[in-house]
């Protein structure tokens, strides 16, 4: 009951925090995706496969660094506020995208690339018409986990003034106000689940049907 009345009494505040949260998420995801794809495309070009493999192991290690660390480092080098928070999230959100896109593109079977080359596709055509569409399920998986991670880390980014729903959790913890804490936690969880659901739908839509059928 406490929670419900808190929700109703603070509806406006919650909604504006939710808006901030979604805004931060969208901006960070867009940047992460664009930068992440650019990096992946760069390191997977022919002749750079070695760099690609190095990036893969670096990203593998980076995935084991807690988000709080990145947020802390950004705090040290950039400061406090929404912008530093977004920078931290972009960097953290990059990791799964680069990891998945790079490994996805590198694992396109060599005979497919050979066939494409043999037919006279240029490097660019090979990338955009063959490699990326075939790697798309893996790439979309990366973007999907990136969005989960960004939403989650955005709550933590509240400590450096990122705002959003994380405020409710931190303040709730500090002031020993369970209803506030729970409100923040539930709202952000719902956001994460809904976004993940939407991303799953998008994934299904953009990935070629030919890659989704099971072998008979």
């Amino acid at each position: 009951m406490n929670i419900l009345s808190f929700y109703l009494n603070n509806f406006g505040r919650i909604m504006s925090a939710l808006e901030v949260h979604i805004f931060i998420f969208l901006v960070a995801l867009t940047f992460s995706t664009v930068i992440g794809m650019a990096i992946s495309i760069f390191v997977t070009q022919e002749g750079r496969e070695k760099i690609g493999r190095i990036i893969l192991s670096v990203m593998g290690a980076a995935q084991s660094v807690p988000s709080l660390v990145i947020i802390a480092l950004i705090f040290i080098f950039v400061g406090i506020g929404v912008k530093p928070a977004i920078i931290a999230l972009v960097i953290y959100g990059l990791v799964p995208i680069v990891f998945n896109a790079t490994s996805g593109i590198l694992s396109v079977r060599p005979n497919i690339i050979e066939a494409g080359k043999g037919m006279g596709l240029t490097q660019n055509q090979l990338l955009w018409r063959v490699k990326i569409p075939i790697a798309l399920p893996v790439i979309m998986g990366g973007i999907r986990s990136s969005s989960t991670i960004i939403i989650g880390s955005a709550t933590v980014a509240a400590v450096i003034g990122g705002g959003g729903l994380g405020d409710f959790i931190f303040i709730g913890l500090k002031l020993q106000k369970p209803e506030m804490l729970i409100t923040g936690a539930i709202t952000v969880s719902l956001l994460a689940i809904i976004v993940d659901y939407i991303m799953a739908k998008i994934e299904k839509k953009v990935v070629s049907k030919g890659l989704q059928i099971k072998k008979t």
Binding site: G116, G118, P133, I134
Partner: peptide, 13 residues
Amino acid sequence: YVIQEIGLFPHLT
């Protein structure tokens, strides 16, 4: 050009 593994593009019909 035809190769043994064929290399059809799985994402295309």
